[in-house]
């Protein structure tokens, strides 16, 4: 199995589309951070303007944590796209290339094929999130240094002590990995159904965008279905920046997202094991 995962990773990282995500992050994040650095504290003031009337602020709130938090907050659509680009190709790509025939005629089970590809896809997702974390926090540290993190949440302003932040980021990125894992496994599921990678990429993105739009529109009927949309739980990463942390909410979101991954993967496995390979 490890051999298979290695092979799948090798295949993933020999395709140039894999690097689109890494390159996009390597361009996008520095652009955002340089822009913030150019703007200076103005980009922070929209958060703090109101309280600055009552309080005097001293210290470095415009720091790598603030910037990384901002970035994590604004990439809800972009990162899923980069994930589907690879995850949607995992199975469909073999169909398009016709390489299912040389792969499935080997003495390996379809379970092993699906699972190794899934794990390889998850590793890619992990590396992309890690890359995002390293670039945002690393470049942010270089440009802005560290400091306390100011967060706006549930009508509260939360300031987290400098030494109380990093672990929250680790967990938040971990949670982001789980969210993106759902995206990846959905794209993977669609990838098992068709013979072309474009379909899974577009379908997955369409679902995410539709779900996000439904969640955003303040109509009762939409709001009542919101709890049934997995995208509603993808923002829970920000709960790690609450003080105190709402563990119940996080456990709920983690379980729901993990259940989605299991169900999507289960479906993929079920479909793929029955699938007649005609390409």
């Amino acid at each position: 199995m490890i051999k298979l995962i290695n092979i799948e990773l090798y295949k993933i990282f020999k395709k140039w589309r894999t690097y689109i995500g890494f390159i996009a992050i390597a361009i996008l994040i520095p652009m955002i951070e340089f822009a913030i650095s150019f703007e200076g504290t103005r980009s922070l003031n929209f958060v703090t303007r109101e309280i600055q009337q009552t309080f005097i602020f001293v210290g470095n709130l415009l720091n790598t944590y603030f910037v990384s938090y901002l970035i994590l907050n604004s990439l809800a659509i972009h990162i899923p796209f980069l994930i589907t680009l690879v995850a949607g190709d995992l199975l469909a790509g073999e169909a398009t290339a016709g390489t299912y025939r040389i792969l499935i005629t080997r003495p390996i089970s379809r379970f092993e094929i699906v699972t190794s590809k899934f794990i390889a896809g998850m590793i890619y997702t992990f590396l992309l999130i890690l890359w995002l974390a390293v670039i945002s926090l690393g470049l942010g540290y270089f440009l802005f240094g560290t400091g306390e993190l100011i967060v706006l949440k549930s009508g509260s302003i939360i300031v987290l002590a400098k030494n109380d932040i990093f672990w929250r980021f680790l967990l938040a990125y971990g949670f982001a990995l789980l969210s993106m894992g759902v995206v990846a496994s959905l794209a993977f599921l669609f990838s098992s159904l068709v013979e072309n990678a474009i379909g899974p990429i577009i379908t997955t993105m369409a679902i995410i965008i539709i779900f996000l739009i439904i969640s955003a529109i303040n109509i009762d009927i939409f709001q009542s279905i919101k709890p049934y949309l997995f995208t509603s739980y993808m923002n829970t990463w920000s709960s790690f920046f609450d003080n105190p942390i709402d563990t119940t909410e996080i456990i709920k979101s983690v379980s729901i997202l993990a259940a989605h991954i299991i169900v999507f993967f289960g479906f993929t496995l079920f479909i793929f094991r029955q699938k007649d390979i005609l390409t």
């Binding site: 309280i51 009337q53 009552t54 309080f55 005097i56 602020f57 001293v58 210290g59 470095n60 709130l61 400091g147 306390e148 100011i150 300031v159 002590a161 400098k162």
Partner: peptide, 15 residues
Amino acid sequence: HIQSEGFAMLPRDGL
């Protein structure tokens, strides 16, 4: 003049 290693917020009226 206020100086601080880290972040500090002080009430304007209560300083």
